[in-house]
Write a protein that binds this DNA or RNA. Structure first.
Lengths: 346, 346
DNA sequence: GTAACTGCCTAAACCGGTTTAATCACTCAT
DNA sequence: ATGAGTGATTAAACCGGTTTAGGCAGTTAC
């Protein structure tokens, strides 16, 4: 049993042809007689030969890998339900193409640009996913400068040279508000994510717009940070208002679940005295008490679409069309109900 | 502005030396006059040259990357607090060494061996982390056969050619049981993880042993699956017992939080009528109601230690000593209290 | 004065593929 | 018979580093 990996030269000599011929056969390029191709492929098969990624990378100047840089505090990242599913979706596309996913987790304090620079300069990846898109995101300029293909998850408001894969945050949020309005709520508050993030402001604006549609104004909008701790604090502030809300719409499940906890802590019944809604439909949403009304997106599908789009950009180059994913859907559970004191105001 | 990346030849000609000299200078190898080294490094600096990873990979037959294969259902993985922090710890070691992390998420249904095979045969990584270690884990044999260095997270019971980085699950679990015993609980149950996993059985055995230490037997041990859904089901079964437990120790936080939900659903007060303890200290543990008594490990440190150990194995080869991490600590919160009907027996 | 050694540096092979230009053996048209 | 054209194949350059063997100049040893 030879422990050494066979090389293309071994295959060539076994098939009685040149290295070049083997390469042609492998890549299905025209110019070889069918019989020769068959003979080469058979030889490769018998030797168990698979072309070396390293050699291929060097000669064709491609990495056969995509990169994902996640800029988050690991503690915060911990319970984010988006990325694992997103990554799984990405992988489902990469696996069949023999590509790999290079992951980088950057703590916000550090220089996130350095993360992308390393990926680009080391030639580790052929393209990257731009997640957690921010307003005037500096990474767009950075990647343009680095010449690294990218796909943005959702659309930046400024002009961007990169294709965007979008999952509109608004319909889900609007559905939540409409659901609460139908139940009879009129005093509704929102706990938003950091305004730097596109998806945070999108949800906030959708919230405001949906209320305005019904001629209402938010009781309050608390700007928070998507963490459980932040959700707790924001909830306390809302409950301390002179005229507190009868329902709170949170920008994600973590804050919402923490909000339920804070409400209970304050002696309020959920949904009896306070209705709560989240966003994400994380695993726990169904199993906390009361189970959480929330909005379910499809992060796996998001990952698939993003990977496909990025590969299209890398392979074909030029202009790649944006992709619009089906919007998130409302999932009604037990944390929302008719308000205790309905319709104070006409 | 030349858009082309400089190569080692550019640096060489600028410094007036040969390619080989540049390589020597870069890698700090002896045999070059200090003045020459300085000149070369200055030239490299001026050109902004960084050696190409691809070329280096090919010539030294190393990938400069480590691999992590996670075999989980993405839905389940979603809310696992371990991996994000673990990965961040790994990266903190890799970043300074210019290494990358290649991630692969394999759905349990698929062939997980294929994932490792791909990583090994494509030469993507120089070594891998073996997480979620199972009893008689087939991956140990597989990796031995593939000749891929690895580090196991925790120690397999059989003989293993790989160094183990261990975080003993037992002290934390024992501390939980002792805490409950001190509160006066005598009827304690456990919701365990799948027995295939080493850490699941370790926690279960520690639970049984700690009770035995006090001359007690478990009310019941429900085998579950670490998911919130599983935690709910297991809890329902325990509460339906003729003599239900006054406290339940869960093998992780997700099941515990779902357990609190199930208890509330059943009309039980936590911790008034049922004490609940988890394991992991996930982000939400502190913010659910009541806040969850649990056990806090240090997954970030786990990642650091694992990465360092794996690199040691790759660089030095031979025998690398196992690493024992400081054990997890008990975090007492509000979900545990004196039982309602204390000390029925003895 | 020459052999042996040392310190510094270079030429060239090498890693394992891809790709281009050239070669060879045929057939076909003139 | 000759030239052109076509299809199958190969030799060799190339990607950008690392590494080995060896060359050259300047001591030192005898």
């Amino acid at each position: 049993m030879s422990k050494e990996r066979p090389t293309i030269a071994d295959v060539a000599s076994r098939a009685g042809v040149s290295k070049g011929a083997v390469s042609f056969a492998l890549n299905g390029r025209p110019g070889l007689a069918q019989a020769t191709v068959d003979r080469i492929l058979a030889a490769a098969d018998e030797l168990g030969w698979r072309p070396s990624n390293r050699a291929r990378s060097l000669s064709v100047s491609k990495a056969f890998a995509l990169g994902l840089v996640i800029t988050r505090d690991p503690a915060v990242l911990s319970s984010d339900p988006f990325f694992p599913a997103f990554i799984a979706g990405v992988e489902s596309v990469l696996a069949s193409r023999g590509q790999a996913l290079v992951l980088q987790v950057v703590t916000p304090g550090e220089d996130e640009a350095a993360g992308y620079r390393r990926l680009a300069q080391d030639g580790r990846v052929d393209g990257v996913f731009l997640s957690d898109l921010r307003h005037d995101d500096p990474r767009i300029g950075l990647l343009t400068e680095l010449g690294l293909p990218a796909v943005t998850l959702n659309r930046p408001e400024g002009s961007s040279p990169f294709p965007a894969v979008c999952l509109d945050d608004r319909p889900g949020t609007i559905a939540v508000v409409e659901h609460l309005l139908e139940l009879g709520h009129r005093r509704i508050a929102h706990v938003a994510g950091p305004p730097a993030f596109v998806h945070a402001t999108a949800r906030e604006q959708a919230f405001v717009a949906a209320l305005a549609e019904a001629g209402l104004e938010p009781v309050a909008i608390e700007v928070s940070d998507f963490t459980a701790a932040g959700g707790t604090e924001a909830t306390k502030r809302l409950l301390a208002l002179a005229a507190p809300p009868t329902a709170i719409v949170y920008a994600n499940d973590r804050m919402a679940i923490a909000g339920i906890g804070a409400a209970h802590e304050a002696g309020l019944a959920v949904p009896g005295q306070l209705s709560v809604a989240g966003y994400d439909d994380s695993e726990l949403a169904e199993f906390v008490h009361p189970s959480l009304t929330t909005v379910r997106a499809d992060p796996f599908g998001f990952g698939e679409a993003a990977a496909r789009t990025l590969n299209l950009l890398i392979d074909e180059g030029g202009e790649v069309a944006d992709v619009e994913l089906p919007p998130a859907r409302l999932v009604v559970r037990r944390s929302t109900a008719t308000p205790a004191d309905p319709l104070e105001e006409s």
